[in-house]
Structure formats: structure tokens, C-alpha cells
Write a protein that binds this DNA or RNA. Structure first.
Lengths: 138, 138
DNA sequence: AATGCCATCGAGAATAATTCTTATTTTTAT
DNA sequence: ATAAAAATAAGAATTATTCTCGATGGCATT
């Protein structure tokens, strides 16, 4: 009875987001799904991403270099963002237990429901580039 | 000899950002400084904000509801962002020591230089509104 | 006070990501 | 098969931000 209400394109968009580690932009998703559905529209990607976010199927990492980045892995984990190339990496370390939400909620009278922890710096690849081109390393 | 290189408008923009707790947008800063300098241009606000960021005089909290938010307090601290009204609050609790940067840098071969920890949820004010209007509470 | 020099600025055009609108197409229920 | 509902394509519209460039401001030297 209960319908899945998932069109093929919608499904393909979700799978594209879930099936990559790059924490893609809307444009990336569009380019990724386009080959399979050549009549895909960028508006459809945006519309469905907004929907996935509301439904909790994906998460937003935030805006990196002017473009919003998404994550199909909704398990709690943290990220590292490279200031040079904008790449987003997953970090497996856990730093905060979820009871901090409770504690903060009580202290501030708010409803704290989630947190995000983002580390910033220069990734290994960009660090090496900088060294070889003499930008920083020596 | 060494000139301060700070025009009055630039100084006023920096002071506006430093003198508020609201973690303002560029537009907010523009409106705040405009009365004192009626010929202020929004482009000047953006230009100087970009410069302050590069110089490390202010920090970017990230994009909230489509607008970038800034913080004149560069001491390490964390934030709570209300998903309803977009307000940004300071949290004084410290959760991470800075040696995690070292540890992560070694583990990933990157240069981790900073982190940001953001809690999300509904602030007290918005929570109360929701209750009285029957949106969630009752 | 006048001059020269650059940093800074204003105004608005340009850009780019995202959202919105509407007609059309696809999907689902009957 | 057909009608109703949901989803989509195309592109216009919106909006925050950046860019361009001619004009202005502020300081140093005269």
C-alpha cells in the first residue's frame, strides 16, 4: 500500500550522493547523473537535494568556496576541509558524546539536536604541491 | 613611519563587527555603519570584511540561511545556531584541546590549523514561540 | 596651502549559486 | 485506458557576493 514515491531520477540522485566520498556539490551530482538520464535538469537536482535534506536522508556539510557540499553518510562523523582545494575528508575519530546535547539544552533552555565539528587546514596533496612549488615549505 | 593604513570607514566597519554579539551579516554591518557614514557602500563592507578575514582580524562562522556570518571575537569558542531564526550564540565551553590539530596532522599528513564546532537546534526564544503557537510543544 | 601618490571608495554592472514558475511529462490509481 | 497526482525541464528570477573603474581621501613632501 505504502508507496515509495521515488521516481527514477530522484533515486539516481540519492544514490549518486550516497555512492561517493567526495561530498559533492549540486553541480557534481548533476554531472554524475546526467549520463544515465540525459534529460536531467539541474533544477531537479536542487529540488531533490532540498527534499533529501528535509527528510534527513542526506546532510549538508556547509558552503565551501561558494558551493554547498552534501554528505550521503548520515552517521555521526566529522570532517576536514582543505582551504586550498576545497576537498572534504571524513574523520572517523569521535570527539563528542551525544549527551552534550542534553547538557547544553538544559543550560541554555534551547533544543540542541545536532552538532558538527569541522577541521580546517591544508590537505596532504596540497601541502606537497606547495612544497614542490616553493610556496611554503622551503 | 609605518602607517596604520586604516581608513575611517574601515575602522568603523571593524568596530561594528567587534562591538556586537549578533555575529552579523555584511548587510547588517552596512546598516550599522551607514548612519555614521551615509555615503558608505555595501561593496566597501564586503571588501573590508574580506580583508579582515585574510588578516585574521575576524572569523567567518559560515553561511546561515544564505548569508555569511562573521565574528569579531577571534578567541577560540564554539557556536550554537538556531535553525528557526538563524541566530548565532556563543558557547563558552571548551571541548577540544588544540593538540588534536597536531595529532590529526600527523595521522593524515595534512596541516590542520583550526577547527570549528557548531551546535544546531532551536533557541529558547523560538522554542517558546513554537509552544505558544502550538507548533510542536503542545 | 599646493602637489603628488596610492590606497580606498561608490556606484552599479557582472557573476554565480540557488530558487521559482509554468507548461509538460511521467507515474500511479482506478 | 484514463484521469488525477506527482515530478520534471527549461529557463527566468532572485539574491548574495565580487568585480570594474573612475573618483575621492588621506598622508607626505614641498
Amino acid at each position: 500500500m505504502k508507496r515509495e514515491n521515488f521516481s527514477r531520477k530522484r533515486q539516481a540522485i540519492l544514490e549518486a550522493i550516497r555512492g561517493t566520498e567526495v561530498h559533492p556539490t549540486a553541480e557534481w551530482v548533476y554531472q554524475a547523473v546526467k549520463p544515465q538520464y540525459p534529460d536531467l535538469s539541474l533544477g531537479t537536482v536542487y529540488r531533490n537535494i532540498a527534499r533529501f535534506k528535509e527528510e534527513g536522508l542526506i546532510l549538508s556539510i556547509g558552503v565551501v568556496q561558494g558551493q554547498e557540499r552534501f554528505d550521503g553518510d548520515i552517521h555521526p562523523h566529522n570532517h576536514f576541509i582543505c582551504s586550498e582545494c576545497g576537498s572534504v575528508l571524513d574523520l572517523t575519530e569521535r570527539y563528542l558524546s551525544d549527551d552534550v546535547h542534553q547538557i547544553l539544552s538544559q543550560k541554555y533552555g534551547a533544543q540542541v539536536v545536532s552538532h558538527e565539528l569541522i577541521f580546517r587546514g591544508v590537505c596532504q596533496e596540497c601541502s606537497e604541491k606547495s612544497v614542490s612549488s616553493g610556496k611554503k615549505g622551503a
